[in-house]
Computed example of a mutant assay.
Amino acid sequence: MTIKKFIEELSKYPEDIDLKDVRIRLAVEKEIGYKRIKSVYLGGYRIVGGATPFGSNSVVLERFPNLGDVAKSLLANLKLPRKERAMKVKLKGTSGAPFDVIEVYPETYNGEPTIPFVQYFCDEEGTIYKDELLEFVTDGRLQTTATIKGWVAVDDFDNAYIYHSKPTQRCKEFCDTGDYITDWVCDTKYPNGKRRYVIDKHLFPDLTPESEPLKVRIQITLE
């Protein structure tokens, strides 16, 4: 199935369905006495394993995650070329002419994704730049004002960020220590490709990792 065909099939369903309200069966079959997985079913579709599921010498583990989380996981791990909108930038601290870049997704030496929320951009010659080296340009002129709308949230390290859309909390293991931390993630991006901006925590002294994100609007003007 192509992405085009997949979109056509999705268009048959109402657009206002919240996938978080839809539960789907995830079944993992393991053979007793062995660590290997025998088969995996998502809904009624076998995605791993043989044609005869759930033998007498097997144990079946079932979970019913919501379809929203399943969709997010698929999109986050979909390593395919994306359609990217070119952005005009110039190198910070230089008088060079603006040039076009697109966001890229380089991988580390072991094939795992790079650090989350760090954006990289590539020019026409294939040179890769980290976002902190670039200034974004509008209509050939540097922006003198910027308005940032978003949601402010604080993580377990007391760092504050403003996110493009209302973020959701996730719990993850910290550096294989057995300890778990809570941070915030969102699925959408600002026009320059960023998902979030760092912001001074002291501007929101009452905000904690347990607080609900705050909807804000911040305007910055160059003098």
Results as ranks from 00 to 15, higher is better:
residue 3 I to R: 06
residue 3 I to A: 12
residue 7 I to F: 11
residue 9 E to Y: 10
residue 11 S to H: 09
residue 13 Y to D: 00
residue 20 K to C: 06
residue 31 E to C: 07
residue 32 I to G: 01
residue 34 Y to H: 10
residue 39 S to H: 01
residue 43 G to K: 05
residue 43 G to Q: 10
residue 52 T to R: 11
residue 52 T to H: 07
residue 56 S to F: 10
residue 59 V to A: 05
residue 63 R to E: 13
residue 65 P to V: 04
residue 74 L to F: 14
residue 74 L to E: 06
residue 77 N to K: 09
residue 78 L to D: 10
residue 80 L to V: 15
residue 81 P to Y: 05
residue 85 R to C: 02
residue 88 K to Y: 06
residue 91 L to G: 08
residue 94 T to E: 07
residue 103 E to F: 01
residue 105 Y to T: 12
residue 112 E to Y: 12
residue 115 I to M: 12
residue 120 Y to T: 13
residue 125 E to H: 12
residue 130 K to D: 12
residue 132 E to M: 11
residue 133 L to H: 04
residue 135 E to S: 09
residue 143 Q to I: 11
residue 145 T to K: 15
residue 148 I to C: 06
residue 154 V to H: 02
residue 154 V to C: 12
residue 155 D to M: 05
residue 158 D to F: 12
residue 159 N to K: 12
residue 160 A to L: 00
residue 163 Y to A: 04
residue 166 K to A: 03
residue 170 R to I: 14
residue 176 D to S: 10
residue 177 T to H: 01
residue 181 I to T: 05
residue 182 T to Q: 10
residue 182 T to N: 12
residue 193 G to N: 01
residue 195 R to G: 08
residue 195 R to A: 11
residue 198 V to T: 12
residue 201 K to Y: 01
residue 207 L to C: 09
residue 208 T to R: 03
residue 210 E to N: 15
residue 216 V to I: 15
residue 217 R to A: 14
residue 220 I to Q: 08
residue 220 I to R: 13
